[in-house]
Design a protein around this nucleic acid. Structure first.
Lengths: 244, 244
DNA sequence: CCGGCTTTGTAACAAATTGCTGCACGGCGC
DNA sequence: GCGCCGTGCAGCAATTTGTTACAAAGCCGG
């Protein structure tokens, strides 16, 4: 994984939320919180979460149910937290899909250690999981997500900086969808957008310069006023060429 | 992963050996014991171990060192055990390659749960070959891991220094994955990366000079800003020539 | 032990990337 | 038209990375 990871804490106790947020922040981890299962699911859609710390005891949908729901759409690593020691066996025994668990009360440093461990393991196997096809096409262009290479319709190679590639990747993962600036900032740089932060606009501008036929009249990356940007092309997966 | 798995307990306390053996036996797990790091390495060569439970406190070579030694030759899952709570951070923080850890005293049932969890995860990713063939190819190049010889697409021999070889090996073991500088530093030199340590960058530069067609426009080893580097080629094992 | 060779870490400088700021432009409500 | 707000983007500065030079450390044959 990259530098700072984005952790989602799901717990309805405000005190826990506050403490965890503060503590994890010290360890170069970015933290968002959700107070219920529903909020958690929403946050997962919205943000680019690297790991979920999920309390079992929750109002409404409980932790087990939430875990199951998350697993329907995502493989994000999950650490479950329970106050009841006997839940431990259940968590690991039942095939909930959790990656680890802890019992309350826990040492915050241990939480950090486990988060790191689970993230590392997730990174290890993060080979096939992310995108089924490794290459995609849009409007004549083709992008190889593994080789990080972009080819223009005429077949020429267009070099992208890391930031430009990340931004294009964000768009390609969410085509035909308006993406808010905060979301783009999160997906591209994994950080929160500051108060007068215009860096997303600038990056979009730089990307447009490379992929738009006429950067003054954007056809691929449209601006949505008061919202953000939207990638307008169809994105199709491309079958691997038969190089083997 | 069904059937009985073979667990190796590494601990010098006879009492622990006895208890663990008895308890795990009840759960359809086969148990062997080793009293020291040396014995553990020997047992791993001799038997087909599915998982190692490794105590940190050992006579002679301690658990950390033992873990590193094991990882030189094997990816067998390892759960570390420590009596000192503060070791926890070290175990997971330092990239030792352990898969999980527990603090003494622990509930035997929890040990079973963790063993199962780790085995399940190991099974998940058991697609990449356990035994890496001794020769691999990428993008026309071929690398003989035993002889430590690299051949260019035209068949000519390219000499690599040991550092360059180690770095290439690290990349080949993790293709198409962004590797952080700290990880590379650990894998190549087995040490932590200091504050203003640029040695990884320099080594990458030197390696590029030898394997990239155009070192100014890297196609194999791409830079990922604020993260590290990524090896972008397909890596295939090469069948041994039929001398056997 | 010496002298020449290679390897490797560190420092220094060059190049690339990126965030930020200021200003221009264009749409919108009035 | 006028002011206001949001966006585009050039220019600059800060950060990150690439490369080279050099020195220390290791290696080897004598």
């Amino acid at each position: 994984m990259t530098g700072t990871c984005h952790i989602l804490i799901v717990d309805d106790e405000l005190e826990i939320q506050r403490l965890t947020k503060r503590f994890l922040g010290q360890y170069d981890l970015r933290v968002s919180v959700a107070g219920s299962g529903d909020e958690a699911l929403k946050a997962l859609q919205e943000w680019n979460i690297d790991l979920v710390v999920l309390d079992v005891m929750l109002p409404g949908m409980d932790g087990f149910e939430t875990c199951r729901m998350i697993r329907r759409t995502s493989r994000v690593p999950i650490i479950m937290v329970t106050a009841v020691r006997d839940d431990a066996d259940r968590i690991m025994g039942l095939e909930l899909g959790a990656d680890d668990y802890m019992t309350k009360p826990f040492n915050p440093r241990e939480l950090v250690a486990r988060i790191r461990a689970v993230l590392r393991r997730a990174a290890d196997r993060a080979q096939g999981g992310d995108v089924p096809g490794t290459r995609v096409g849009f409007d004549g262009w083709s992008l190889d997500l593994e080789r990080r290479e972009l080819r223009a319709p005429d077949g020429s190679l267009v070099t992208l900086s890391s930031g430009e590639f990340a931004m294009l990747q964000a768009f390609i993962r969410n085509p035909k969808t308006p993406l808010r600036r905060e979301q783009l900032c999160d997906m591209v740089q994994g950080r929160e957008q500051g108060a007068f932060d215009r860096s997303v606009d600038v990056q979009v501008s730089r990307l447009r310069r490379k992929v738009e036929a006429d950067p003054n009249r954007p056809a691929l990356i449209k601006t949505i006023r008061n919202v953000g940007y939207q990638f307008c092309a169809d994105v199709q997966p491309i079958a691997e060429s038969v190089t083997r």
